[in-house]
Nucleic acid binder design. Structure first.
Lengths: 152, 152
DNA sequence: GCTACATCCTCTAGCGACTAGAGGATCAAG
DNA sequence: CTTGATCCTCTAGTCGCTAGAGGATGTAGC
């Protein structure tokens, strides 16, 4: 059983060292065994789990959704109904998010295209942001998935 | 000069009352004059500024980006290039994320279909999420912008 | 005028998902 | 055997709000 330090697991998974410890603290990653000198030792399965979490986070899933997906992964023989429900739930979420982002993209494209590289006085970016009424995507008062910060 | 209470300004701009106070505290909105009884009094320009901020936040611009856009708006004789660059950055990020989510949606749909009869034993979604290398859209190890939370 | 109740004020604390730093132990290389 | 990287735990900070306490003021009905 090959054992990896937290640093090696971080390098292998792309999840930062403090973030791994954070995931352990919120029980998203099981507490690994420790060496004699109290260091965490991970195996390949942990690295896969971390990569899974990282990828899902990059796709915008919240930790609770990832928890559900991980549970699905941990019990691959569970009844189809439960799994199906989780998957459909995620699918709906993903589709909603895509729709929101596409509306957003359309608006951003209008802004960028409208910018004739003149002066701000005639800049569509500013104009469109200033005038809410011009905004098409905003009929639904739905919370949009917004940008947060970068991973690394 | 028509003067609005913070509640009226909130109703007119769509920004919540505590959020307005928060924007003032981070100097995104100038401190308005106060009435004799220490209440904030806003005018139409403040409401426009708030609507601008709200719209930009809904489009996923970070507060610092909005600060930059507002500065541009305040000095409208500058070149449009800066505003354009900010919008282009957001557009690139949004497009990247749409591509990721569409790949994921395809996998989720396959899973939901495949799941209709039987067990989840070999789930492509899990595999794709677990194995970063398998994921086509994600060859670049670029730090992706992650999803945060909604504005309203 | 008096009573309700809405709205306002300031302040502090909390959320999610981390990130940064202090202060100390341990490891691997030269 | 020392140097420097890595590890440990812990607390506190980040962003963009949101919620609540505890109190002052405004407004409407009687």
């Amino acid at each position: 059983m090959p054992s990896l330090s937290i640093g090696a697991a971080a390098a292998a998974s792309g999840v930062k060292v403090p973030t791994i410890r954070y995931y352990e603290s919120i029980d998203l990653l099981p507490s690994p065994p420790r060496t004699g000198s109290n260091r965490r030792s991970y195996d390949a399965a942990d690295v896969r789990r971390l990569a899974f979490i990282r990828h899902a986070r990059e796709l915008g899933f919240e930790v609770e959704a990832i928890r559900a997906l991980l549970k699905l992964q941990d019990e691959p023989d569970q009844s189809c109904a439960a799994a199906d429900a989780i998957a459909r739930d995620r699918l709906a979420e993903v589709e909603h998010r895509i729709a929101s982002l596409e509306a957003l993209r359309a608006e951003l494209m209008r802004m960028v295209e409208g910018c004739s590289h003149g002066h701000v006085g005639r800049c569509r970016v500013i104009e469109i942001l200033a005038d809410h009424g011009e905004c098409r995507h905003h009929r639904e008062a739905e919370p949009l998935a917004l940008a947060g910060r970068a991973g690394s």
